[in-house]
Design a protein around this nucleic acid. Structure first.
Lengths: 122, 122
DNA sequence: ATACATGCAAATCTTTTGCAATCAA
DNA sequence: TTGATTGCAAAAGATTTGCATGTAT
């Protein structure tokens, strides 16, 4: 694990947002830790392939990177905002239902967030 | 609903694969129904916005389009293959757990498909 | 010395857009 | 005739790649 990989992992683990590669790149610069955007991508891929981070894709937005700790996502269909929500772990249940050895699962729940709902009323 | 939108909807509803925009474009050409790739995208967006089709994103692959009938997805982490699986509908359960009015949910189950598993053994 | 990590720019891939031409009501 | 739909090419945005350079062991 290189220094950059570690810095990036710390940024992701220390944030409860769902950062894009570019946002991570900008955060690195704020910390005066220079790294090219391509390097950020390279490191994100390394972290992802080694299951140290998760990737969350929402249509219309660039991929976002997230902690691996088990949780699910609420996705606002209007503004694309992602919120974490920890529902019961269904891994075992799914394993039985699927009858296959599963690695993990991703549950995205689509809704309209409060801000977007109140905007709609106007 | 234009003719092209209908042709595209029929291709999606008549396929149990999970086609990309380009594959749909090629299928149209096979049927001697010419439509530019951009037109395919335009129509896919129209269908998607009107909830006539679903979009499935798997990292590393272009978006795929799918029927709306409720079902979940098994995703092979090795080759990206998507298979359908119909698990119990959790909408009501999630609505209660989340305490929000939810629109829908997407459940993707990650595993290694049989072909990839037997390749690994070699 | 060797292998890996980086920066940068260019390339790639997917998707969207602008605009002129065409089609349909 | 008016507005929506199309085709095409160009643009845009996200991500990857190639290569020369730098770094660590």
């Amino acid at each position: 694990m290189t220094k950059n990989a570690e810095l990036i992992l710390n940024i992701i683990n220390g944030s409860d947002e769902h950062l894009t590669a570019e946002q991570i790149y900008l955060k690195l610069n704020e910390q005066n830790e220079k790294a090219a955007l391509a390097t950020v991508y390279n490191n994100l891929n390394y972290l992802y392939e080694n299951d140290l981070i998760r990737k969350v894709s929402v249509e219309g937005y660039p991929d976002r990177y997230d902690r691996t700790i088990r949780h699910d996502h609420l996705i606002c269909k209007k503004c694309g905002k992602i919120s974490d929500i920890a529902l019961e772990d269904m891994t075992e249940k799914l394993r039985r239902a699927v009858g296959e050895d599963i690695i993990s699962y991703d549950l995205k729940i689509n809704y309209i967030c409060e801000e977007c709902r109140s905007e709609e009323k106007e």
